[in-house]
Design a protein around this nucleic acid. Structure first.
Lengths: 239, 239
DNA sequence: CATATGGATTGATCTACATCAAGGTGAATG
DNA sequence: CATTCACCTTGATGTAGATCAATCCATATG
């Protein structure tokens, strides 16, 4: 089991500012869980007795309607946080989009720790406010953007998040793995997977992106792609 | 100026659990502001040196794209909270949908108070988590629901929120004011106002709702209307 | 009292995306 | 090495909702 100081979650997540005693306490309630791509972490409505931070891989939060329509409502990249203190059950399906490792904290002790360690609560508030902003940006995408703009936006979001985690070859080109299936992309964007496929092809034919293999994406000119998102040129950040 | 203890925001908002000293401190940094329907409280990007709680009326948070497409991303009813501690500018247009009174707290002293008063931060975290859940429910609506389901959902949301504030004649019928213009509804739902109008008319013709005057709505059978939202029958809550 | 004015409604038409359907591709498996 | 399986692509067609345009209605205004 890794030391928390080596754990990627220190970048953004709850224990980033902990030291000494607090860190020791966190260690005690901490454990790692691994999932294979496609596995479900918890179903909506199921008991969820932990909160967690993504270490490696990608997890998604989704809602499902009775007739099966699905909408993704959260995309968790490394260092992102999942789970709501003060709630027994998960409100969403949590699914591993890729192979996934999560750093889990048992909920009850975590909540106790929160009471005695104000900065954990503060950190959590900051992170929740960030997530709320991301959700609102996402709402604009869902409510008002065209299919083409949605695809361009998603690619930019992933590229940006990816770039912030590890520096990519900055010879103008941006190269990275698109870790979502067409179906997952369609659930993110409120489209069908056919429309996703068509629009990705369209961007490829126009030279705005290249695809190498099935999942690797190359963006020759990031700003050109940004133009297609519909966002303000200097626009903030999503997710 | 009202006493905080008489202020509607005590129901849900930040000062709900304050007493003695804290309340006195809150009083000192508190002031009220009134707006007429249609007025803008702040524009996205503008300096916002306060946080606030809605006392009476309705405020909206919206995002605008360069070409004018608009999406509402927040609907603030009495007792709801606006503003992000730790941020200088507003990320959204804040607009008075009806005549509006807000209870404002100057930001800097509010943040200081937060540092010394853990339960304010805790309360804020709870509220932010609730808002995040609401935003995610809203994402499902925007991404996957039909126009008809969107309208039914919005009417149910307002009815529910309204009912929780003051008890309505519970003789089966639910009667309340729909405080949004067709345009505001369309911005909430990611539709055009024409589509909103058509779908409201459709629900009326089918007897699922009645309209009295321009804004008053009567729901003869709430459960019947709920059926049209696409949500699980026991479904939670929005906004 | 005539007349703006700011919603709201309703109709006709268009189109972006969904739906239905048929292959294609590449890694995994016996 | 053939076969399967999961995923992706592309085509043909359908449709929900957008767009464009006219009219209505209630309140406000000189």
């Amino acid at each position: 089991m890794q030391e928390c100081k080596d754990c990627p979650i220190r970048h953004r997540a709850v224990c980033a500012r902990c030291e000494g005693d607090e860190l020791a306490q966190l260690e005690q309630i901490k454990y790692y869980r691994s999932f294979e791509a496609g596995q479900t972490v918890v179903w909506a409505g199921d008991k969820m007795d932990f909160v967690a931070s993504v270490v490696t891989g990608i997890a998604t939060l989704s809602q499902t309607m009775e007739d099966g329509r699905r909408q993704m409502v959260g995309l968790l990249l490394p260092s992102d946080f999942a789970g709501r203190p003060g709630r027994e059950t998960s409100a969403y399906d949590v699914t591993a989009a890729t192979d996934l490792v999560m750093c889990c904290f048992r909920k009850k002790p975590f909540e106790n720790l929160m009471l005695n360690t104000p900065h954990i609560g503060q950190r959590l508030l900051e992170m929740t406010l960030d997530e709320l902003d991301a959700a609102r940006e996402w709402m604009l995408l869902l409510g008002r953007k065209t299919a083409r703009e949605k695809i361009a936006s998603l690619i930019c979001i992933i590229a940006r998040r990816d770039a912030s985690l590890q520096l990519n070859a900055a010879d103008g080109e941006l190269r990275f793995d698109l870790p979502l299936t067409r179906e997952a992309m369609s659930e993110y964007l409120g489209l069908t997977l056919e429309t996703v496929s068509r629009q990705v092809s369209a961007l490829r034919k126009e030279g705005l992106i290249r695809t190498e293999g099935k999942r690797q994406i190359v963006i020759p000119d990031f700003d050109a792609l940004l133009e297609e998102t519909g966002d303000d040129s200097d626009g903030g950040f999503l997710i």
